[in-house]
Design a protein around this nucleic acid. Structure first.
Lengths: 334, 334
DNA sequence: CAGTTTGATGGAAGCGCTCCCACACCACAC
DNA sequence: GTGTGGTGTGGGAGCGCTTCCATCAAACTG
């Protein structure tokens, strides 16, 4: 453990503690000579500032949380989170902010998480995958904690900054692909109904069907997991055997659905055309590769980081929202 | 932000700051009356102790790092890490220790990570997936940082505590399955050569072949990723077209290998019998399901947590090692 | 040359907490 | 009455750092 203190550094450099501190923190009012002496002392002593002491007085911890109110199984199974974490980490670490990953399954570990956020461990938070019941937007707004959401929160959206994509438009557009290719009985496997992305995508699917004058009643709720998609698809095939098109609210679920369809002895896209959502890599690997919608996760994550930084810098305090456009990706599943 | 301080609590409860502090920290020498008054004050004020101030004096941060010197792509793609993180988190959070995930690709972000470990941000570390060149065991030993490794570190193994499994025995045993079923030309796709798990598994494969008097020269190095396994398998099929058995050092790579074999028009297990390693869930989902070795990750992770706690408690300071036995799992790929 | 600005410096306060230590208090003994 | 021990309490020091403020030297101004 580094046991050298700032005092030691100052003494060795022949300056006061105040000057040493200024020199170390990119001091503005320090002579070149003093600055050099301090740097030298730091080097020989292997000095590292004590973060606790520092943050006690600066009231900053130089670390931010990435909050994921989701079961860990799902966090690691869904490439969405990996991508987001990666991009956020990269964006924030360029500013010397440490990202602390906070995974807490709703309900069980939620208190623990809120206590952590409240406890002053972190300067701000990036929240991903917020659900209706977690009320995270309200919580962070109440705390006055700088925060940015990836994906619009269900409630309290006007109180926080967020980056989102137009899930409604994306879903409508990709459903239109099914309609255009001649499908007349189009079902959907939705995302969780308590997430804005889930709800928006069903709404888009419904809008497309309504506009085409098709029935929009073949709906089963999924959970954004591969197994969940498979199970949902089985149910759907049972209750609506005449389905000839399927809009699945995520590629991961679509991969599961493809398995179920295959097992039912039906062919994609000839018997049933399938489209997914996200385009995160799995989409190109399924058989057949999925026609899907590119979810601009990179853009959203980067923007969320930027939104958070703006608040951390005190540049702005009013909530801002940024929405990115989705993009259709055609492959062979529809 | 909670701005109430211990002083406020003490004043409201009508006691001194010292008594309030004792009461809050499960005080031993506090009257029931004082204790109750403090609890009440904490409640009405919504008081949360300032962690920086606390750790400045206790010299503890109540958080530990889980260090993964690996590219984030791989961390999230490999279920091994999810499992480990989950179990470690669970084991440590029961002791109110916060786990901070530290993912740093070797080389690039290594300095940053070491600075973090050295900086006094954490009380200890669990290190997963250490590579030969990262010298993490030596680094933490030099720092005197309490630490436990999941998997034996390549160098400095005698200086730190670790939990491991007998990869040599596991690999030998699963290779024997191939030999017993009559394979005579058995290749292997190894893990990274700079990780003990990788090296031990090739050694086990080689030992089995040597004992059976078979040639052990069909070797290609993989990287524990699915794509890597696929590429490695292609190379192997090209250079050794007569292969009738394949021992792949991880199920994830084996899944890739199965794809390559399928594309080459050969059948598993009839043309080529394949065995994997890890048994983390993917193994049951491949076609055909993989015969593999169960890697006791849960045991290792739990033990590592225990080893770390022992050091944190000061119970012991001498490095300890614990090795768990692997277990053969037979399915249909061999 | 007095007067003013500018820049570099160190003294000292104080961030919120824990914990040592001295102190009071109340038994219960002799 | 004076001891003796145990128990709860508060005063106060101090953890390592940043930052306000006063100081002082040097460099300008007219």
């Amino acid at each position: 453990m580094s046991s050298a203190t700032l005092d030691d550094v100052a003494r060795l450099a022949g300056v006061s503690r105040a000057t040493a501190s200024r020199a170390i923190n990119g001091g503005s009012r320090v002579s070149a000579k003093a600055s050099e002496a301090v740097a030298e002392a730091v080097r020989t002593l292997g000095y590292t500032p004590n973060p606790a002491a520092r943050s006690l007085v600066t009231r900053r911890t130089d670390s931010v949380a990435m909050v994921i109110p989701e079961a860990d199984e799902r966090v690691f199974a869904d490439p969405f989170f990996a991508r987001t974490l990666r991009i956020v980490t990269r964006a924030l670490s360029s500013r010397d902010l440490q990202v602390v990953l906070l995974i807490a399954r709703p309900g069980e570990e939620e208190d623990r998480m809120l206590r952590y956020l409240r406890g002053g461990h972190i300067d701000g938070a990036i929240v991903v995958s917020s659900h209706r019941s977690d009320l995270l937007a309200d919580h962070v707004a109440d705390l006055g904690l700088p925060a940015a959401f990836v994906g619009r929160p269900w409630t309290g959206a006007h109180r926080v900054s967020y980056a989102d994509t137009d899930n409604f438009a994306g879903a409508r557009e990709v459903t239109q692909v099914l309609i255009d290719r001649g499908c007349r009985r189009i079902g959907t496997i939705t995302g969780p109904a308590d997430m804005s992305a889930g709800a928006d995508r069903v709404a888009g699917w419904r809008a497309a069907l309504d506009a085409a004058g098709l029935a929009a009643d073949a709906v089963v709720e999924g959970d954004f997991t591969e197994d969940g998609g498979e199970a949902a698809c089985e149910i759907l095939l049972g209750s609506h055997p005449d389905i000839d098109g399927l809009m699945v609210a995520s590629d991961l679920m679509a991969a599961g659905a493809l398995r179920a369809i295959d097992r039912a002895g039906r062919r994609v896209p000839d018997d049933i055309a399938v489209v997914g959502y996200d385009d995160l890599g799995i989409a190109e690997r399924t058989t057949p590769p999925l026609t899907t919608v590119k979810n601009p996760i990179g853009d959203m994550a980067e923007e969320a980081a930027r939104l958070l930084l703006a608040q951390l810098d005190g540049t702005t305090t009013i909530p801002r929202r940024v929405v990115f456009a989705p993009e259709l990706v055609r492959r062979t599943s529809a």
